[in-house]
Amino acid sequence: MTTVVTEVSEADVRRHELAGFLRSRRERITPEQVGLVRGRRRRTPGLRREEVAQLSAVGVTWYTWLEQARDIQVSPQVLDSLARALLLDRSERTHLFSLAGSVDPAPGSDCTGIDPAYREMLTRLEPFPACIQNSRYDILAYNRTYARLLCDLDAVAPEDRNCMLLAYLNEDWRASVADLPGANRVMAAKFRASMAEHLAEPAWKSLLGRLEAASPEFREIWARHEVVGPANRTKIFRNARVGMLSLEHTDLWLGPSAGPRLVTYVPSDEESRQGLERLMASVLA
């Protein structure tokens, strides 16, 4: 009897490891985490292959071949899109590029995965309201005072925890912003500036379409084509529990400007400081 020995190359091993890694990351993500609607008949754990392809702006067949360990070429730009679509953290992103044998065009950058250390930092900042957002204004994590600063954020569906949606469509949020027209105009201008780098991405186009369909106010502002860069400024809130709060808004980028950022609100006067302490006490009560 003759034994046939099949030699497995390093490239074959890498492709199969990459296929398994992509599949495992895909299966851990819920549709709500990436702004998709969960269908009633969904049986697939996590995202479907076609959903990852859509979010990454690649072909479904091509992505399927990638998960099947086919011998195909993958560009750094496509890997970057996959890393963002699959919400990879820094270590996972590095692993992805290593398996693909490719050079990361943005080494050390984070996608939208939230490191546990950042969540601990949010808690330590209390009673100052703070959250982590991405450039699309999705609220990825937040502390307890931020959860009650503008509305009951815990009561908002995860797929709706987006500052743009809340500012234009959530009545509690809108009632809490003292200068709502000015704030919404600035937010739309920042969103337009950020979207210039993501025009072809389905998640961005989906959010824009939803805002245009649901808010005449947004449609009117969006038609002005105004753009503005990130800036820190004082914001006045009308909190339902403790009254008026004057807070200094600050963005701290946790990676490149297209990545996540830590948003904090620090009181600008003693009255607002005391107000935040009362807000924290009401949350704990």
Score class of each variant (00 low, 15 high):
Glu277Ser: 14
Gln68Met: 03
Tyr137Thr: 12
Ala203Gln: 13
Pro260Thr: 08
Ile132Met: 08
Ser257Leu: 14
Leu276Gly: 03
Ala141Tyr: 03
Pro105Lys: 07
Arg224Tyr: 04
Arg26Tyr: 00
Glu271Pro: 00
Arg161Tyr: 03
Glu197Ser: 15
Phe21Asp: 05
Ala240Lys: 07
Gly182Met: 07
Met164Tyr: 00
Gly275Thr: 03
Ser109Tyr: 02
Ala200Arg: 12
Met280Gln: 13
Phe21Val: 01
Cys163His: 12
Leu150Trp: 07
Gly259His: 10
Lys235Phe: 06
Asp115Ile: 00
Arg185Leu: 11
Pro116Met: 04
Gly243Glu: 04
Pro181Thr: 05
Ala53Arg: 04
Tyr265Pro: 07
Thr234Asp: 15
Glu126Gly: 11
Arg148Pro: 01
Leu284Trp: 09
Pro267Arg: 06
Leu279Gly: 13
Ser206Pro: 00
Glu277Ile: 04
Ser91Lys: 10
Tyr168Val: 01
Arg233Trp: 14
Leu125Asn: 10
Pro45Asp: 07
Arg40Pro: 07
Ser176Val: 04
Arg261Phe: 11
Pro105Trp: 09
Tyr63Met: 11
Gly20Ile: 01
Glu201Tyr: 08
Ala178Asn: 08
Val78Glu: 09
Ile236Ala: 14
Phe21Gln: 05
Gly255His: 05
Arg124Asp: 07
Arg261Met: 13
Met164Ser: 05
Asn143Phe: 05
Thr234Cys: 15
Leu82Lys: 06
Trp222Val: 00
Gly113Ser: 05
Ala285Leu: 12
Pro181Arg: 09
Gly259Pro: 01
Leu245Trp: 12
Ala281Trp: 12
Gly255Gln: 03
Arg48Lys: 10
Pro76Ile: 05
Asp104Leu: 06
Leu140Cys: 08
Met1Gln: 11
His95Tyr: 10
Gly209Val: 01
Asn232Met: 09
Arg84Phe: 12
Val52Gly: 11
Arg224Leu: 15
Arg25Ala: 03
Asp179Ala: 12
Gly59Asp: 10
Arg49Leu: 09
Leu279Val: 09
Ser282Met: 14
Arg136Phe: 10
Ala200His: 15
Leu18Tyr: 00
Gln133Tyr: 05
Gly243Thr: 04
Trp173Ser: 08
Leu87Pro: 01
Glu67Lys: 04
Gly59Ala: 04
Phe97Gly: 02
Val266Gln: 14
Ala285Glu: 12
Arg185Ala: 14
Leu36His: 03
Arg42His: 04
Leu199Gln: 12
Ala147Cys: 11
Leu149Gly: 01
Arg26Ile: 02
Leu276Ala: 09
Glu212Val: 06
Trp253Ala: 14
Arg238His: 13
Leu99Tyr: 02
Val266Trp: 13
Ala223Asp: 10
Arg23Asn: 09
Lys235Leu: 13
Trp222Thr: 00
Arg41Asn: 11
Arg90Thr: 03
Gln73Leu: 11
Pro45Ala: 01
Glu32Ile: 00
Leu66Pro: 11
Met187Phe: 07
Arg219Cys: 12
Leu149Met: 08
Met244His: 10
Gln77Gly: 09
Arg25Pro: 03
Ala147Ile: 02
Ala83Phe: 07
Tyr146Asn: 09
Ala53Cys: 11
